[in-house]
Computed example of a mutant assay.
Amino acid sequence: MTGSASELARRLGEDAEAVCREYLSNGYRSGNHWIVGDVRNTRGRSMHVRLKANVKGPAGKWVDEATSEFGDLLDVIRESCGLVEFREIADEARRFLALPRPQPLVSDQSRQAAAARGSPEAALRLFAMSQSIAGTLAERYLAGRGILLTACERALRFHPGCYYRDLVTGETQMLPALIAAVTDIEGRITGLQRTWLDPAGNGKAQLAAPRRSLGNLLGNAIWLGLESGAPVPVMAAGEGFETMASLRTVMPSLPVAAATSANHLAGLTFPPGCRRLYIAADADAAGRHGIERLSQRAGEAGILALALRPRLGDFNDDLRHLGPGHLAAWLGDQLAPDDARVLLPSA
């Protein structure tokens, strides 16, 4: 067996159901598919893995209908185990292929626990390998998006050569990346989001998927301005990092949380003492279910949930095309009067 990505993926596909039982233990078989919540082994039904080759394609290919993500079984190993480097992914694939077929009744709890441990550890490892964004391509990228954050934003880092694998071709490359830590409300890193950048400084890298997340994301977020354990009476939450960082740019005293997806937004854990929650909504209403579910949960917890809506597509569009002054004025009309006076001193 060669060590190429395509060969490893093909060999894994020959035993696709055993791979799924090992790495997607929260799923189940239905016909010719393994059904699970997502590639990170979350419970659910949106991701389908083809178990046997047919006219639609080879075994081992999968698609997540909720996010439009797709890939092969190497991607399953990477995400479910929280691996970062291709060498680690290939080593784990070789280890699995050397084992006998897993039996369906073998306890899945130990496998799930191992995967859960692996993802945060991989995130911590990559975060530790990264550096401050000050003076780097990552800082220039954010500034180009109109996002100006202080040096005390500890969630953001820069990696000059972060591993990227094309999910279709299997080709790999090393590219600079903005690294954003996903943490719980105590400040513990549970995952991260990577945004690969164009080495020439022209925004994001020209990739099919220039932004990916790994780790334990549900309930957690990319937090800006959160002090571990401190009460957070007023905060804002939304899906995208750049949307929330744009709000933080014009309201630098407001703690904000970027949940990375609509599903994760719906399950966000509220920090202690939260009384008012502003939820950032895109103009096209994408992710409406996540917003509605988060609003419902906030109400059940006695938290007043209020929507913030952009003038254009999202708040980063507003920041870039209308400017921080116009964005601040637009937000001032949507904030509670007390919050507007505190968060927008010039309002």
Score class of each variant (00 low, 15 high):
Ala200Thr: 14
Ala134Leu: 10
Pro160Lys: 10
Ser130Lys: 08
Arg11Pro: 10
Ile303Trp: 06
Pro337Asn: 04
Arg212Leu: 13
Tyr141Asn: 04
Ala266Ser: 14
Pro100Tyr: 10
Tyr23Lys: 00
Leu207Tyr: 10
Ile179Thr: 08
His48Pro: 08
Leu24Asp: 00
Cys81Arg: 15
Asn216Tyr: 01
Leu51Trp: 04
Arg275Glu: 15
Arg94Met: 10
Leu197Met: 07
Ala262Thr: 06
His264Tyr: 11
Ala113Gly: 08
His321Ile: 07
Leu51Glu: 00
Glu65Phe: 09
Ala328Asp: 02
Arg43Lys: 14
Glu88Ser: 15
Pro160Cys: 05
Leu277Asp: 00
Val49Met: 02
Leu335His: 12
Glu239Gly: 07
Gly302Pro: 12
Val84Thr: 13
His33Gln: 11
Cys152Pro: 05
Ala177Val: 12
Arg140Asp: 10
Gln103Leu: 13
Gly187Lys: 01
Thr67Trp: 02
His321Gln: 15
Gln131Met: 09
Val63Cys: 09
Ser130Gly: 11
Thr136Ser: 15
Leu126Phe: 14
Thr190His: 12
Gly290Trp: 03
Leu247Phe: 09
Arg45Lys: 15
Pro104Gln: 03
Leu247Trp: 05
Val182Phe: 09
Ala285Arg: 15
Lys204Asn: 06
Gly82Cys: 05
Val76Gln: 01
Leu124Ala: 08
Pro104Tyr: 01
Glu186His: 14
Ala66Glu: 03
Gly187Ile: 04
Glu186Val: 05
Gly161Gln: 14
Glu85Arg: 14
Arg87Ser: 14
Gly267Val: 03
